[in-house]
Measured scan of single mutants.
Amino acid sequence: DESNKPILLPNESQSFERSVQLLDQIPSYDTHKIAVLYVGEGQSNSELAILSNEHGSYRYTEFLTGLGRLIELKDCQPDKVYLGGLDVCGEDGQFTYCWHDDIMQAVFHIATLMPTKDVDKHRCDKKRHLGNDFVSIVYNDSGEDFKLGTIKGQFNFVHVIVTPLDYECNLVSLQCRKDMEGLVDTSVAKIVSDRNLPFVARQMALHANMASQVHHSRSNPTDIYPSKWIARLRHIKRLRQRICEEAAYSNPSLPLVHPPSHSKAPAQTPAEPTPGYEVGQRKRLISSVEDFTE
């Protein structure tokens, strides 16, 4: 099969070098950035008060330690540790928490760990991170309901609301924008112990962030949302095809390698009803078989 044979790379090609550099910018793992907010007593309706908090309760602090690993920003190499735009020179604080497994990295933009500057009256330095995160974990210690939209931002799609209760338990629920209701189930609340709260809140936030990324990708319907490693695979396959075309153009005697095509017509299947918005969006999480067989 010609399409699977190794090909020689061009010795000097600026377009090839640019493509390789672009490939280096696509990590081999999925990345997520999640905002974390603490809401104190009497702050449920005040964005400024929430963003001005420099610490929270003892249970909130224990919750943070379970979310991930504490890292010092100045020691991080952005090409190895995903920071979601946090500055490593102290502009966004000294520490944050991050978490990773074999296929993804997540960083938490924690408002109480970011510096509260006197010259920044409206807390814009914090909002440029927190307001651009799709998902926020809100530790609501106010005793009042927290409403979506209290923290203004164009991309605040989903809130994971943590409400501490007695007996070391917590109520965990989801809020989302109306255009996200087909992807996020907000109907079920959970009672979770303090011990298990970081794991549950983190998983709910990661799932909500993946759904938000799919939702946000609708602005470019021709580019369905893939995982990062599938995006790398697609980029490599496009690069291979372009090299083959350039080689055939410079030397017409060489065969032009095309991806294999299936001449056999697909079997006719009964027509199915058109899937609704929710089903269609969830299918976009699934990769096409052509990603692996071309």
Rank of each mutant, 00 (worst) to 15 (best):
K74Y: 06
S3G: 14
H262E: 15
H235A: 10
F134N: 03
P252W: 15
A205L: 01
Q281R: 12
V160N: 00
Q105I: 08
C76G: 14
V81I: 12
G182Y: 10
M104W: 13
N4P: 14
L285N: 14
Q213K: 12
A35W: 02
I26K: 07
D101L: 00
R242S: 15
N196W: 04
V36W: 00
P78R: 10
P115Q: 05
N170Q: 00
I286N: 14
S52K: 08
R59L: 01
F134W: 06
I230P: 12
L22Q: 15
H215T: 06
N220K: 08
D87P: 08
R218E: 10
L285Q: 11
N156V: 07
I151F: 08
M104A: 12
P198S: 11
Q268P: 11
Q77Y: 09
V184K: 02
Q241F: 05
G143M: 03
Q268S: 08
L239N: 10
V160A: 01
E41M: 07
D1A: 07
S142F: 01
C76H: 14
R232V: 05
D179L: 02
V188E: 06
G68Y: 03
I286F: 12
A231N: 10
C169W: 15
I71N: 07
T116K: 12
F155R: 14
D133H: 07
D102P: 13
V119N: 12
N156L: 06
V119C: 11
C89Q: 12
E272Y: 07
L48M: 12
L233M: 11
T112M: 01
T61G: 11
E278W: 05
V289W: 06
D87V: 02
S19L: 12
V158S: 02
P259F: 11
Q94G: 10
E272D: 11
L197H: 00
E246K: 07
G93I: 09
V289N: 13
Q203K: 01
E47W: 03
S227W: 08
D101G: 02
R232P: 12
E278G: 15
C176W: 03
C176V: 12
T150G: 03
D194G: 00
S44K: 02
L48G: 09
L70W: 03
D166Q: 07
H215N: 05
P164I: 00
D194M: 00
D194T: 01
K126N: 04
H100M: 09
H109L: 06
M180Y: 02
H262V: 14
L171C: 03
C169N: 05
L113K: 05
K147N: 12
T31G: 03
T31W: 03
T65D: 10
K152T: 13
D87T: 04
E54S: 07
Q268F: 08
D102H: 08
M210Y: 05
Q94S: 08
L23S: 07
Y58R: 08
A49G: 06
R202V: 06
Q43I: 01
G149N: 11
I71H: 07
A271C: 09
A205T: 01
D87S: 13
F155S: 14
P252M: 12
A271L: 12
E168S: 07
L239Y: 11
G90W: 04
R69E: 15
R202N: 01
S217H: 14
L22F: 11
Y249N: 08
H235M: 14
A265D: 11
I71G: 13
G276T: 13
Q268M: 10
K127S: 12
I34S: 01
T274F: 11
N209D: 10
K228C: 06
R218D: 06
S263G: 12
K178G: 09
L206P: 00
A201Y: 00
A211W: 05
S212E: 01
F95A: 05
E47R: 01
G153K: 04
P164S: 00
P259W: 10
E168R: 05
H207Y: 08
L64G: 01
G93M: 14
F108R: 01
H258P: 13
E144V: 10
P10R: 09
I110L: 02
S44T: 11
T274I: 11
N140K: 00
A267S: 09
D185A: 03
K80D: 15
V188G: 13
D223W: 06
I7T: 08
P6R: 05
Q175H: 06
S227D: 07
V20S: 07
F16R: 05
S261K: 11
A211S: 03
K264Q: 14
R238S: 15
Q203A: 03
L23W: 07
P226Q: 07
H216T: 06
D75M: 14
H55S: 07
R18D: 14
T112E: 02
Q77L: 09
Y249T: 09
V192E: 01
Q213W: 12
Y60R: 00
V81E: 14
Y38E: 01
Y277L: 11
C176D: 00
F134Y: 04
A231H: 11
G66L: 01
S52E: 06
D92R: 10
N220I: 06
I243L: 11
W99S: 03
F95W: 07
E62H: 05
Y97A: 11
A35R: 04
V289K: 14
G153D: 08
G143L: 03
L239S: 08
P260L: 12
V158T: 02
G40Y: 00
E47K: 01
Q241A: 10
P6T: 08
L233R: 09
R234W: 04
G149P: 05
V160E: 00
I50Q: 02
H122F: 13
G149L: 02
T96K: 04
V200R: 00
E245Q: 09
S142C: 02
T31N: 04
S15R: 09
Y60M: 00
S28E: 15
R195D: 12
Q94H: 07
F146H: 02
T293S: 14
H215C: 08
W229L: 06
R69K: 13
S217W: 09
L86C: 13
Q241R: 07
L22M: 13
P10V: 14
D118A: 15
A35P: 02
T150F: 03
Y29G: 04
S253A: 11
G143W: 02
L51Y: 07
I151W: 05
D223K: 08
N170D: 02
D92L: 09
I71M: 11
I243E: 10
L256N: 15
S3P: 12
R242Y: 13
T31V: 07
D185T: 03
I110R: 03
C124D: 15
Y97H: 04
K147F: 06
V138H: 00
S250T: 10
E168C: 08
S19F: 14
G131F: 15
Y249H: 06
A201V: 10
A231Y: 07
S193Y: 01
C98L: 12
T274S: 10
L113D: 04
L256T: 14
P259C: 15
E17D: 09
E245W: 14
N156G: 06
V192L: 02
K190V: 15
S261Y: 09
T269M: 10
Q105L: 14
G276N: 10
L51M: 06
V172I: 12
H55W: 15
G42R: 04
E47D: 04
N220V: 09
K74M: 04
Y139G: 00
N4Q: 13
G276Y: 06
V158F: 10
R238D: 15
D118N: 11
A211F: 13
